[in-house]
């Protein structure tokens, strides 16, 4: 699952850096914008059947690849 999520995030950012540094702040570095974030939520829904509302978590709680992976893992557990 970690791998699948990393692929998704990498596609959205168009940058391999998310693999090298999975603690990078995606918003602060301008790697994803508000629309990318919505796409990510929709992809997570399609891939894992996990529905997430855009306002459910703060952007800080979903700021880095590692945090996103942790949230999804926790929800699916």
């Amino acid at each position: 699952m970690r791998e699948k999520l990393l692929v998704m995030i990498e596609e959205l950012c168009g940058d391999e850096i998310v693999r090298e540094d999975p603690d990078i702040d995606l918003l602060e570095e301008g790697l994803i914008d508000s629309l990318d974030y919505i796409e990510l939520l929709l992809k997570i829904e399609d891939e894992f059947g996990l529905k997430m509302s855009p306002s459910e978590l703060t952007r800080e709680e979903m700021a880095t690849p590692n945090r996103i992976i942790a949230v999804v893992e926790k929800r699916l557990a």
Partner: peptide, 24 residues
């Protein structure tokens, strides 16, 4: 952003009527 922009973009992407991200 959370209750208007996000919802509109989500519906537009889901509906599949508009494909271009910039247009959405």
């Amino acid at each position: 952003r959370d209750y208007v922009f996000s919802r509109i973009t989500m519906d537009l992407i889901r509906s599949g009527k508009v494909k271009d991200k910039l247009t959405i």
